[in-house]
Design a binder for these strands. Sequence first.
DNA 1: GCAATATTTCGGTTATCATCGAAGTATGAA
DNA 2: TTCATACTTCGATGATAACCGAAATATTGC
Lengths: 231, 231
Amino acid sequence: MNSNPNLAEVASLIGNPSRAAMLVSLLGGKALPAGDLARAAGISPQTASTHLAKLIHAGLLIQESYGRHKYFRLANSEVGHALEALQTISPPKPIRSLRESNQLHALQFARTCYDHLAGKIGVALTDRLLEMNFIEKSGKEFLLNAKGKIKLHEFGVTVEKSPKSRRCFARQCLDWSERRYHLAGSLGASLTRRLFELKWIENLPDGRAVRVTDAGIKGLSDEFGLHLTIE
Amino acid sequence: MNSNPNLAEVASLIGNPSRAAMLVSLLGGKALPAGDLARAAGISPQTASTHLAKLIHAGLLIQESYGRHKYFRLANSEVGHALEALQTISPPKPIRSLRESNQLHALQFARTCYDHLAGKIGVALTDRLLEMNFIEKSGKEFLLNAKGKIKLHEFGVTVEKSPKSRRCFARQCLDWSERRYHLAGSLGASLTRRLFELKWIENLPDGRAVRVTDAGIKGLSDEFGLHLTIE
DNA sequence: GCAATATTTCGGTTATCATCGAAGTATGAA
DNA sequence: TTCATACTTCGATGATAACCGAAATATTGC
C-alpha cells in the first residue's frame, strides 16, 4: 500500500547524525559555509560535501556561492518547521562532556529558533508579554492587542501584518527545551531583530546560542519587567 | 557542536521505508495489529516485529494487547504532526501501477489525517465553512464564531473547548496533496467524527482513504453548499 | 490436549552507506 | 605564475542494519 509521498527518503536524510547536526546548526536561520558545517558535525570536508549535495538535491537546503566559499541555508521555513516538529518528539540526548553540557545550558538558556528567540529567555519574555497583557493566547496563535501594538511600536518593532505574506503573524512555537510555547511567526522575528539591533542580545561564537548583554539585562527588566537571575 | 536532542535517532527510525509505511498507515488515527502493518509495509511478520519494537522503544507508538493480537497506534498527536510536517517537505513519489494511481487519487480526494478530514474534500469543506462565515482565519489557527457555534451545534457536533486538553482547538493543518490548509485540531476531529456518525463518509477497505456516501453528497450540499462533482 | 493463528527471538546473509585518503577543480592572494 | 584555501569527485574499506528462515512463545478454538 505504502501511500504516496516518500517521506522515508527525507526522513532518512535527516536521520544521519552528521546531516542532522548540520541541519540543526542551520536552524538559527543563518547561512553557513561548508567547512563550518563539517566542523559542526565533526566530519571531514569531503564527507560533508557529499552530505550537503544530498540535502541540496532533496530540496532541504539551498546554496549560495561567494567566491570560493559556498554558503548553505535551510531551503524554506517548512523545513525548519519539520525539524522543530521532530525535535519535540525526540528524547533528550545523554551528555558526554562538560563542554557539551555548557553548550547545552547556553542553548537552553537562550537561542535563536530559525529566526526568533527561544530557550528559557524566549519562553520567559513571551510569558511577560502575556502577563503585561500585550498579547493573548488564541489556540496555536497569539493575538497582539491594541495595547501591545502601541508598546511594541514604541519599542521600535515594526508591527505590520502584511496581507501578502502567507506567513503566520504570531505563531506559538513549542520549545523543545522548555516544553512550553514561545513567540514565533513574523512578530517573533521582528522583536528578535530589534533585540539584536539594540545589542540586548548577541550571537555566541558558534551555534545558535545567544547571550543577553548587560544592556539587555537592564533593558528587559525596565521595559518588560523580566528579571534575569544568574544560574 | 551537535546541539542536544537527538533528532537523528527519531528521524532515522522514520527514515526506513518499511517503518515509514507502517507509520503512514497509522496516520489515519486507528490502531492496527502487527500483521496488518507488516502487510502494509510489504515485509515479513518477523521483520515488522523488530521494527515495531524499535518504534515503541522510541516512544513513537503505543501498544495495546487484545488476546493474541497486539494493536499499535501513534503515541500522540505530536507524532502525527511531525509526520505531516515531513510529508510537506517530501517530494512526490513516482507512480508505478494503475492500482497505486487509483489509491493516490482516492487519498487526494478524501482521507483522514490522524483524526480529521483531509484531501480535496477536507480543504473544500474548510473553504465552505470560511465562505459561509462560520469560522475565520487567524494566523495558524481558525476561530469559530458565534454563528458557527450555533450551526455546528445544530449539526450535532459537540463544540466544547475543554480547558484541560492542551490540544489546539481548530488548527490549520497544511495538506500535503492540496498544499492548502484544512481544519484540524479538536474541532476538526469532532466534525469528522460526526460525519462518520451520520454515515456521510466511510472508510475504504484499507488505508486511510475515505469515501463520500450518497447521503454525504446530498448532505454536504444541503448543509454546507458543498457541491461534489464526479471526476 | 491438540492444532491453528499471531507475534517474537535468534542466527546468518547481504546490501547499503558513511567515512576518509588521494587526487582534481576553482578561486583568491602573492 | 605559483602557492594556498575551499570545496568536490573517486575509490576502497568497514560497520551497520534490514531482511528472512527456523524455531520459540502465547492465545484461541475444537
